[in-house]
Design a protein around this nucleic acid. Structure first.
Lengths: 107, 107
DNA sequence: GCAAATACCTTGACAGGCGAAGTATCTGCA
DNA sequence: TGCAGATACTTCGCCTGTCAAGGTATTTGC
């Protein structure tokens, strides 16, 4: 991974929720998607990913259920809740504001 | 402070170095400058600020010296080193790249 | 038959941010 | 003179998020 994870820190929840806004998905798939989108420049470490899922579920922003694959490894799917959508919107807004602030401060 | 500090986390060093690129300064002043620039939307907590100074100095990115005020409280001034300038440039670059990545990931 | 990919989970360490509390000096004002 | 408030720096200990390392189980390809 070529990008300092510290700079993405704090966006983990936003990234996961953004993916779930496009539809239910499961951990491994979401992480591959992230690698695809960034052309391998970024990935979530598994431990980080699964801790985030637990955090988001405990907060009521996502729901999980086991997929009923009759083939392949078992998958735990996640679904964004209504509260999750609202939270996502507020995180997007926070990103936009912080982006402007950082821009001003680092030049 | 209205902005989630977690989003700025990881930029503390960059922000401090950016201010020192404009000339030597001391903690309290740098923090006031940050509040000015952001119109009060952001500030570094004192503990955060001074730990960052120590971290940066130990890494050789800044130097410190006591000011010789004969009035007012004593001030510890900081000066950016050559290594600090190079580090700052690399942090700026990292910011630009991470900004693009985040943009892609959160929509 | 076995390596590699898929898929998930847990533990413990570490780093950075920060609340809280403390020290010391100076300024303004009653 | 006395005292609040601003200036200025410092330390301690907690909290949170990241992640290395290790583990489990299944399926696919050779």
């Amino acid at each position: 991974m070529s990008i300092a994870a510290d700079l993405i820190r704090g966006h983990t929840d936003t990234i996961i929720l953004a993916q779930l806004m496009h539809g239910d998905s499961y951990g491994y798939s979401i992480n591959r998607k992230i690698q695809e989108i960034t052309q391998g420049q970024y990935e979530l470490k598994e431990a980080t990913l699964y801790t985030a899922f637990r955090r988001l579920e405990q907060s009521g922003f996502i729901l999980s259920y086991w997929g009923d694959e009759n083939t392949g490894a078992r998958r735990r799917y996640y679904s964004i809740t209504k509260a999750g959508r609202a939270y996502y919107a507020s995180l997007l807004d926070a990103w936009e504001r912080s982006e402007r602030i950082i821009e001003q401060l680092i030049r």
